[in-house]
Computed example of a mutant assay.
Amino acid sequence: MGAKTNTGRFFEDYAVGQTLHHAVPRTIKMGERALYHMLYPARHALYSSDQFAQSCGLPFSPLDDLIGFHVVFGKTVPDVSLNAVANLGYAQGRWSTPVWPGDTLRAVSQVIGVKQNSNGKTGVIWVRTTGFNQHDETVLEYVRWVMVRKGNLDAPAPETVVPDLPKAVAAQDLVIPRGLDFTSYDFTLAGEPHRFGDYEIGEQIDHVDGVTVEDAEHMMATRLWQNTAKVHFDTTARPDGTRLIYGGHVISMARALSFNGLANAQMIVGLNGGAHANPCLAGDTIRAWSEVLDKAETSAPGVGALRLRLVATKGGAPFVLRDEDGKYRPEVLLDLDYWALVPT
């Protein structure tokens, strides 16, 4: 009798051009927002108040951008990263349509690259994932690459294909939500007075606050997104017997911490690149700092875009990213490059 359980794909099971239709669509409502705001100190006004969102031209408050990201990401795990050693990076991410309470999200991925590692035991795969809502509208898309174990060490190495990915999403390719208008933006209610013109390219911001992460809330969050990756739950899945904190948990924590200094960076619309530089484990205290990489005007009234580097660390001095040899310092957890919309 054939086995009915799913052991997940291994490196040799992927081929460039494959399309992966991910199972279990997810309807998300205000319960997800409540849990998200409980798990992270998230308090950007646009995602906290219907009235504030309406003053910015939206019908009501959408769900946080990263809720959509986590749900879509979670859909992909059984097919992409169930047997992953590590999630390595992101590129070419764009949010195209806000996620509204009651939307149902599903995900499809295409394999766009494969490369076996020299040890012959693992390899890297690149996938382009698209999240759709119930109207078949694209909610978001992104590329990520993952190191995956081989199931059969004797399986021949595939021809190497490494996709050529741009370093950033061009500002003119960012999608501004329909109706968004910051001309009547209430800086007092938002929490800070800083607008587009107050930020300079090269400026660095220490977000000051820290949050110590524990296994309990990390596992709650990861289950919330239906992320089944073994390394997040099963202590036998890693040689050191620890649970690896889901990288998206670090992203959301750092984004929430960035409120102090970037309270008006309301909406994430682009993900240019990202790397989980070092593992995050229970007991680590996450701190964050940002650097302004670029600025761009948009066609929406009163709306500008900031390209921001968001760095999460577990200690060390802010604004120090790499050693003299160019490698990430051991205390750096996350290096994320994204576009956010701010009032001008």
Rank of each mutant, 00 (worst) to 15 (best):
F233G: 01
T242P: 00
E141N: 13
I205E: 11
P193C: 10
G273C: 02
A155S: 12
W145L: 00
A254G: 13
A221N: 04
K230R: 15
H194E: 15
E141S: 15
R223Y: 11
V213G: 01
Y185F: 12
A168M: 07
M253T: 10
H218F: 05
D284G: 01
V169D: 08
L153P: 00
F233P: 00
L140C: 15
V250G: 01
F187V: 09
L257N: 05
G270D: 03
A265L: 12
D164A: 14
L262M: 14
T222D: 05
V148H: 05
M267S: 08
T188E: 15
D154V: 01
M147H: 03
V175A: 10
V146P: 03
L244R: 06
L140P: 10
P166Q: 06
F182Y: 14
A275N: 06
V161C: 12
M220P: 02
A157E: 04
F182R: 05
T183Q: 11
F187R: 10
P193M: 12
I176L: 12
G274P: 10
A190I: 11
F187C: 06
L180W: 00
Q204L: 00
G210M: 09
F259M: 09
K167C: 03
V211A: 02
L165Y: 01
L224S: 08
S252N: 13
R243Y: 09
A155G: 01
L153R: 08
N260W: 10
L281T: 07
D198L: 03
N260V: 09
P239C: 08
P177N: 02
S184M: 06
E200H: 15
H232S: 03
G247S: 02
T235Q: 14
V169A: 04
S184G: 08
G270T: 01
L281V: 10
I268H: 06
P239Q: 11
V162H: 03
P193I: 07
D209K: 13
A237Q: 07
D173L: 03
G261Q: 09
E203P: 08
D164T: 09
E141K: 10
N152H: 02
E217K: 09
P193A: 13
G151Q: 05
E200G: 10
S258C: 10
P239Y: 15
S258P: 08
L153C: 00
P166R: 07
T160N: 09
L189Q: 15
T188H: 12
E200K: 15
A263V: 10
A263G: 14
E214H: 14
T236H: 13
G273V: 03
M147I: 01
G261F: 14
D234A: 05
C280T: 15
G179W: 01
R255M: 08
I251S: 05
L165T: 04
Q204W: 01
A216W: 13
H207A: 06
A256C: 06
S252W: 00
I201Q: 12
D215P: 09
P177W: 01
T183W: 06
R149Y: 11
D215I: 01
G202F: 03
G273K: 02
S258A: 15
R144P: 07
R149T: 02
N227A: 07
E214L: 11
E203W: 12
A157T: 04
V161T: 14
E141I: 01
V231M: 13
V146F: 03
A229R: 12
T235G: 04
L140R: 13
A229C: 08
I251Y: 03
W145G: 01
A216E: 10
L257D: 03
G197E: 13
V161W: 13
D154H: 05
M253E: 02
M219W: 05
T222N: 07
I176G: 04
H194I: 12
